[in-house]
Computed example of a mutant assay.
Amino acid sequence: MSWVHIARKDFADAGRSMMLWALTGLLILAVAGISVIPYLLASDGTTPGFEDGVGFLFSPIGLLIPIIGLVVGYQAIVSERESGSIRFLLGLPNTRRDVVLGKVIGRTGVVAIPTVIGFLVGAAVIVALYEGFAVVDYLGLLAFSLLMGLVYVAIAVGISASVSSRAKALAATLGFFVLFDFLWEFVAMAIYWTVEGSLPGFDGLPAWYLFIVRLSPGQSLSAISLTLIDFVGAEDIDLTAAGRVAGEVPFYLENWFAWVIVTLWIVVPLGIGYVRFKNAVLS
């Protein structure tokens, strides 16, 4: 299995370049440091509960992991093309499919290992400072973070496989992040305005509008988080909850269908990237 060797090499290269260690330090500081904040803000002398620490941690992690995934993945293949090392990589018994698969698995490992270490240190902090520790919910948040890492690494590697220069990969990755993680809801609102002639409210909304909003990887991942994590305030995370739709809830707005959307966000960018990389003339 040639892709296994490529994944191992990619992971080892990250360790030698200090990327792995830098990400580990960053995620330890992020998970442990952010989870301390509710404890420091408590002013009534009572010890905050587990939900306070984890609930405060959710949103920053939901922003940080996607950024890390995109940064780790966007140079995965295009840097090999620019340096010329891609010819050596393909000179071994490796196919271009092996390169794409090996790169996405190796880069996912580069994100996953520091994430696990950061959560282990964060668990020690939460146990020490907060009342109670819900192991299942904490593992659910870890699983959610790992899934986020996989999704955004896959998107970035797909972009990296699709273009011929690092500048193009950076521009496409940045454009993707801005569009789908910051502007997507405004895009959906613009479509709603065009169709309905007004801005959407909070509830009583047509299913098609809520579905467009959920097509963002961040929104579909938020819906998935509700199936993995059960803590106070979690129900407020999903801004496209079924309670906002007018009439009966269609199947594509149920939380389980978000898994389908997320799977497509993994498979489709990699598929497009592989096809473009397969047909590319390597100079």
Rank of each mutant, 00 (worst) to 15 (best):
F11M: 06
F11A: 07
A12Q: 13
S17V: 01
G25A: 12
S35V: 10
V36Y: 12
P38T: 06
T46A: 05
E51A: 15
G53L: 08
G55N: 14
F56V: 09
I65G: 11
L70W: 07
A76H: 11
R81D: 00
S83Y: 11
S85I: 11
F88H: 13
P93W: 11
N94T: 13
R97N: 03
K103S: 14
V104T: 15
V104Q: 08
L129P: 07
E131W: 07
G132H: 09
V136H: 07
L141K: 04
L142A: 11
V151Y: 01
A156C: 09
I159Y: 08
S162C: 12
S164N: 14
A167S: 13
L170N: 11
A188N: 10
G197R: 11
G204K: 06
L205V: 08
R214S: 04
Q219A: 15
S222H: 08
I224Y: 00
L226C: 05
L228Y: 04
I229G: 06
G233L: 05
I237V: 15
L239E: 13
A241Y: 02
G243C: 06
W256I: 01
F257L: 00
V260K: 00
T263G: 15
W265E: 02
G271D: 10
Y274L: 13
R276K: 14
K278C: 04
